[in-house]
Design a protein around this nucleic acid. Sequence first.
DNA 1: CGTTGATTTGAATATCCTCAACGTGCGTGG
DNA 2: CCACGCACGTTGAGGATATTCAAATCAACG
Lengths: 245, 245
Amino acid sequence: MKSTPTPAATQMDKPHPCDVCFQSKFCLPIGLPQAEMGRIRDVIQATVRVQKGETLFSAGQPMTKVYSVHAGSFKSYVTSPDGREQIVGFHIPGEMMGLEGLGQHTYFTDTVALEDSEACEIDLRALETTTRDLPSLQHQLHCIVGNKLVRAQQDQFSLGSMHADERLARFLLDLSERFKARGLSPDEFVLRMSREEIGSYLGLKLETVSRLMSKFHSAGLIHVAQRQIRITDRRALAELLMPQT
Amino acid sequence: MKSTPTPAATQMDKPHPCDVCFQSKFCLPIGLPQAEMGRIRDVIQATVRVQKGETLFSAGQPMTKVYSVHAGSFKSYVTSPDGREQIVGFHIPGEMMGLEGLGQHTYFTDTVALEDSEACEIDLRALETTTRDLPSLQHQLHCIVGNKLVRAQQDQFSLGSMHADERLARFLLDLSERFKARGLSPDEFVLRMSREEIGSYLGLKLETVSRLMSKFHSAGLIHVAQRQIRITDRRALAELLMPQT
DNA sequence: CGTTGATTTGAATATCCTCAACGTGCGTGG
DNA sequence: CCACGCACGTTGAGGATATTCAAATCAACG
């Protein structure tokens, strides 16, 4: 399954897509010394292909790797003893998955591809060793987990304090921003997840999500055709998040 | 404000209370070489006293330190642009605060003492430097952030998939476990936060929390007298979390 | 004691959910 | 190429859960 055959150093000019997660604007700026970039790349072991619906890793499994999305998209969900599932995150290219296993060395979520996708494997041992040598990589890792924690807190806010329509608006705007950060169109994109999956993530039922999509559509905030979304009135969508105005 | 005057090495026999967060059962077992323990202690700079209601750090502030609770308790909350507040966590002795700032070097929550409390300051630079030299400390830090991420996902499950009574039951059982892990009674304890604060954390209104406390009380699950709680039927409380049984 | 803030309790309401029916798009196979 | 079936999505009506508003009670503290 190894699909990174060329030594890292030879492709310095053309960044490997997996570097994205180490170069996000929130973290280190691009432009590290080449030697360091080479070593950072070396912790990326291989690229695995995962078909739509297939599981990348499961809760309870011993954890030896973290992953970054190379192409496609994934969902992560937790399952309670009585079988209820809650999606705790969607992942698009450049984002890391599996970090919550850092402590127990056990995955805590089931992570499944939403479409045919590819993920980069990063060996945990190699990552830990290399971060010790390479302060810039250490900092990068801290950035990533810090931002994961921030995102989790934002999700908590959404679930705990926002109304259904605000949650959906935030979801759409957040996705839009993330696409933009990856160089994709922020205004027009395809949802890779079902209404039910969106609902699970937002703590809503699929019917509620559907109703709100229709409501946003007829209010002229977005154009919806199945999973194809176009944001037509970003400002109004953003204003939903500030109810008093 | 410095209240750790004695060199770390001289008090090896009697662990400093702040070590707890570096020795949790979920992370490294106690019993590191003394030299390492000494260096780990050295990253703990000082102990700050915070009076009830005072702020330890605020969202948006530049972040140079993380903190661990030495004594007392804290709440962390996020505030939206329109002024709504959502408590995203309570912290008891041995737990770390401020880690979500790792990425942006900016705090993302307001963290406030629920009672007169003490927190240990840990300089971020010192922590980063020392973790590079000390694999055991690096691993410890990874454990802590990993467990933070797991906890955040559990909170997301609670907020997104559980009913009000289940959320409160989980809250009480979770607190109970954390007290137990710190050597305190798991069955009888004092809530340091108001009904409103519990409600904020659980995504409920204070009246709902109050009603459920009363309901649990009359159902014989717990004994409630203001903020004094005694868990009288742990099993029944736990069964609330598995609705089908 | 009287004031203040926190908590409890009640009644009416709103939001979101459940159940159910219907529509739409897409792939498969005739 | 069209028809069928199936998964997904939409829409409606009624109901449940948690909220809002309001009032009463309790505890702490000067």
